[in-house]
Design a protein around this nucleic acid. Sequence first.
RNA 1: GUGGUCGUAGUUCAAUGGUAGAGCCCCAGAUUGUGAUUCUGGUUGUUGCGGGUUCGAGUCCCGUCGAUCACCCCA
Length: 431
Amino acid sequence: MAGPTFQALPGFRDFIPRECAVRNYLFETWRATARRCGYVEYEAPILEDTSLYLKKSGGELSAQLFRFEDQGGRDVTLRPEVTASLARLAAEHQRHFPKPLKWFEIGQCFRYEKPQKGRGREFYQFNVDILGEAGPAADAELIALAIETMLAFGFVAGDFVVRVSDRHAWIEFASRHGLAADAIPEFLGIVDKIERDKPEILAAKLAALSLTTAQVREFIADPANASPAYLAIRADLTARGLGAFVELDLSIVRGLAYYTGVVFEVFDAKKSMRAVAGGGRYDTLVATISDGAVDLPATGFAMGDYVIRNLIEETTHTAMQLAVWLQRHAAACDVFVVVADEAQRAAALKLVTDLRRAGIATDLPLTAAKVAKQFQSAERSGARFALVVGAEYPELKLKVLASRSEESGTAATAVAWLTARLLEPDGPLFA
RNA sequence: GUGGUCGUAGUUCAAUGGUAGAGCCCCAGAUUGUGAUUCUGGUUGUUGCGGGUUCGAGUCCCGUCGAUCACCCCA
């Protein structure tokens, strides 16, 4: 191990085949669920002008940017989120699409943070947004997808809950207590930390705004403070049969500065207290990004791959669903060709090509090897069948690897034979 | 950015301050055209890196890099 050793940068991951398969399970579930609900996929650049993020995302995010100067002297940043890019994209292209836009994206984001459980410097996000519809029906439709996604992973009632709030409720609270409009962002920041700040610090912060902890806690505790938008969303989701997954939680405010109304988070019902997904309404972001050229109301959420994967693997029934999926997708090929006689390798190569062109996933050993070793390779590949090409060619033997039974056929009809055979069950096992 | 714990073979882990080991994995053979099990044999280390203490450091001390967990924040 002399000299420099190379490894992945801190917070970055290698996806060896099994890890990649788990990742793809998330991707395929996300994608299938979004499509099922009428969303279309888009993608945005992974690298953007830094100013896109400095303007409106706000808060800690600007301190966590993977930011550098490119060779043309531009100040650029690997995206920490995609909402800003989406707003830019939407402002530029929205004319070409009927409203509302129901768009989703699956891609990598980057934040320069200290890696720990559930968080790396690089992560994948499932981003879903509805643009061009200002009413609560859009928020309900969006939250419905968040719930359907959880259900698609195998979570059931009791495993998770969507906590919904509305910044409008707090804005009303603030104005009723005489807070200036420009003090509201700071106030929301205090509410956001109400469960995390020490009581005396919390009290001091609120006192600066002439408020008390008791006033804020009372407001959170009273269901009567639910906003009209929340009530409409709840009624909508109840009609869908999803009402049981939603609850009011006015303590949810969320950190990002651009949220303007309804905000929500999907929580693990067990005490992990970590949001699996979060989002909300951002009605002014598109206008801000486009300098007022386009005014498009919007609502969206993001689900990160770290947390959802942890939750899936820590929950018995969802972990089993993942295991079944991995099992079903683990095979490297359907048919493994065994070259029992090297003199027939040319025939085997032709056969492999024919099978592959017929759409049958086929593999073969690249160098001469003992038959026993080739069967081991076949076994490990996960293939259902081993097709033996030997001295008796063009006669072929087909071994069903699971049952160890053997069948015969000829090279001339191999493609049709195997195509049909792959559609049939393997029959009884006799070991 | 702050703090705790931990860095030994590909991997999981041993080794009262006294010659660096084991399981698994991998490779080969037993078995010349059939996979499990079993048996036999075999490869692999500047003990993360750099200093210090000591007759002697994997072990103790300092630094550094990395991993991990928590805080901060968030997906």
